[in-house]
Amino acid sequence: MPTRRQRPKLAVWKFASCDGCQLSLLDCEDELLAVADAVEIAYFPEATRAVVRGPYDVSLVEGSITTPHDAERIRQVRKASRFLVTIGACATAGGIQALRNFQDVEEFITLVYAQPQYIETLERSTPIAEHVFVDFELRGCPINKMQLLEVVNAYLNGRKPNIPTYSVCLECKRQGNLCVMVAHGTPCLGPVTQAGCGALCPAYDRGCYACFGPQDSPNTGSLAHWWQTRLDVPRDDLVRAFRGFNAYAEPFRKESEAHEQ
């Protein structure tokens, strides 16, 4: 456990991602000062130019690995970090860019770039945990800033973070939302998705999009069967539903592949 006198050094790293997750740290307006008080923000290019050399007590890693260069860089980050937390769907599941994993990347490159020989990329976009040991994975696209604070807070106080891995439905029901699937026939991924967002979409009358990835024991097959047989969801839409920000998370990947014609 870190001592009070010496503030732990925190670093924020970016790989292939949109920056949304690390920005949620800056978004913690009310709490940001308290965080800055509690930790020394040693490396955070998005917020400050100042760079403090490693090693770091905590590294927050955003983004997926898509290039050979990044595959090497993440090893350096791991070496420089005592506690490594991946944040967001890119870092924990490969992100939306993992849609490439279902296609031929070479073909994309020749179609998109005039000089494809300068493009150096990997065939697949992969989560950080496929490359190095990860101490904690924080899900979400984007992450929930309260959950991020909870992880930092738990680390500082030497306790286990309260980040449940059960379904969105528990949050949805505790909040007293009406179930959009049962009462409106709207397809909802909540039952197979990990809680964390506070059942945001069902609260606004929409089905869950699975931003927080699969819950700890997802039964995607049963849900997909119900959508097909009771909610008349066509196969193409089923594939698309499971191929979102967490498309490459294994249970979702398998489910989308099962419905591909």
Partner: peptide, 12 residues
């Protein structure tokens, strides 16, 4: 094989 282990039944 059908149960989603989603907990809705116990919540309601």
């Amino acid at each position: 094989s059908r149960c989603l282990t989603c907990a809705n039944c116990t919540m309601v």
